[in-house]
Design a protein around this nucleic acid. Structure first.
Lengths: 112, 112
DNA sequence: ACAAACTACTATGCTTGTCAAAGTAATTTG
DNA sequence: CAAATTACTTTGACAAGCATAGTAGTTTGT
């Protein structure tokens, strides 16, 4: 079973915030976390991921800093801000609500 | 609580198929059914609705015919096809699956 | 030693679903 | 008789996500 891209759309930012909320991380690792959290069911496109990082940083939900790797490739780390944590909490509430509404819409019976 | 547009994205076709699966209908009535099924929480933009009709008809999931209203404005009715019913069933399975994956992604803990 | 694979980030251009806004036209209500 | 409602269509724009390609350093296998 594969998940259509449009079903994930709108969750990308929340997914990233959830991961960063558990500790600072960088692109490649976030990508692997997503694969792991979804039991190998979902993989985020690299371009989408880095686009989201830039969007979230612009919004003030995350902050970035270059790691001081003495060996290995340079890494840009991301940290969630307190505003980002608030947005994460809001998004989770919204999801719990939307889940019910969507379920009704796609499988509920109409009474007229 | 309002539902972000992106959370519904990708469900529009399924919502329409679900409604038509309960009987032929036309634009305005489908629109009202959506409002009713969502407890007034969600309203689909007209342009989006009619765009979806055209998309679904092109795909062969629905068929249309003009009603023979003797009075009242002309109405274009839509009927779900058996292919549409199959796609509806598939979409419902996909949703049940996606719901779990998304929940994990936005609130699950990472174990590394 | 050298190629292949992996890590890590960036940039460009396209597709697609949805929306806002405006238009057409008939009917019903106050 | 104006305003609201029913009913459908068209146009243009936007934003998320994607494919693709590029840069550059590191690790692994033979």
């Amino acid at each position: 079973m594969e998940i259509s891209k449009d079903l994930i759309r709108g969750h990308t930012d929340t997914i990233i915030l959830n991961i960063l909320n558990q500790g600072d991380s960088y692109g490649y690792q976030v990508s692997k976390s997503i694969r792991q959290l979804s039991d190998q069911q979902y993989e985020l496109n690299e371009a989408t991921l880095y686009t989201a990082f830039r969007r979230l940083e612009k919004l003030g939900d995350i902050e970035s800093y270059w790691g001081d790797e003495t060996q290995g490739a340079r890494r840009k780390y991301y940290r969630i801000t307190s505003q980002g944590q608030q947005h994460l909490a809001t998004a989770l509430d919204e999801w719990r609500f939307a889940k019910k509404v969507i379920s009704n819409l796609i499988s509920g019976r109409i009474e007229l």
